[in-house]
């Protein structure tokens, strides 16, 4: 026998269920007057530095059907590559950019959409640069533990090819599941939960 290590266990996850909007996006689901606005609804204001972009997409199930009850959160660096977080020690992020957004899938179409800015690159722990990316967290009915993935930008071909995370993907034909499609300042990205096109999900 040895001394016990005495670490606690992380609380186990349970699905967000179909009514996640009540707690996280009450105004979206018609519960007005409790909070002035839904948290994460707006990431930018008139003073935010950087190039404005939109990011939209759908979460697709194993039959090809978009999830209409999912909730998506994103987290990203500001235009200079700094995170608006107390754990950011490299500098002070743009105070006019939250870096965090939260949107519901549309109850009819399953489409979600963020208005944000193009993030700057951030370092990997070994000092190399990571290609600019947006971190994504998905919860929904039927998802037992929130899913983590990332979205990269298609025009950054060289940076994506050198990205330390994308480089770890063994099957190179799966790399495109993490890269958005571009139409001007509008990016779109479908996330596939299953099938040949299954998105690469992250154990982070």
């Amino acid at each position: 026998m040895a001394q016990p290590l005495d670490y606690l266990k992380e609380s186990p996850s349970q699905t967000a269920g179909p009514y996640v909007h009540i707690g996280c996006l009450p105004n979206f689901c018609g519960i007005a007057g409790v909070y002035p606005a839904d948290l994460g609804h707006s990431m930018v204001n008139a003073r935010t530095r950087g190039e404005r972009i939109t990011l939209s997409g759908r979460i697709i199930d194993g039959t090809g059907t978009p999830l209409r009850d999912a909730m998506v959160e994103i987290w990203q660096a500001d235009a200079a590559g700094l995170y608006n977080s107390p754990s950011e020690t490299r500098g002070t992020a743009d105070p006019d950019f939250t870096g965090w957004g939260r949107q519901a899938a549309d109850p009819e179409t399953g489409l979600w959409r963020f208005e944000t800015i193009r993030p700057g690159p951030v370092p990997f722990p070994d000092g190399r640069l990571q290609a600019p990316h947006i971190s994504v967290w998905i919860v929904a009915r039927g998802i037992n533990l929130g899913l983590n993935t990332r979205i990269y930008f298609p025009e950054n071909e060289a940076a994506n090819a050198a990205d330390p995370v994308l480089s770890r993907i063994e099957h190179k034909n799966r790399v495109p599941t993490l890269i958005a499609r571009r139409d001007g300042a509008a990016y779109s990205h479908d996330i596939h939960l299953q099938g040949d096109a299954e998105t690469v999900f992250l154990d982070i």
Partner: peptide, 8 residues
Amino acid sequence: SVLRSPQK
């Protein structure tokens, strides 16, 4: 969960 669970 059957159709919403990643398999890879």
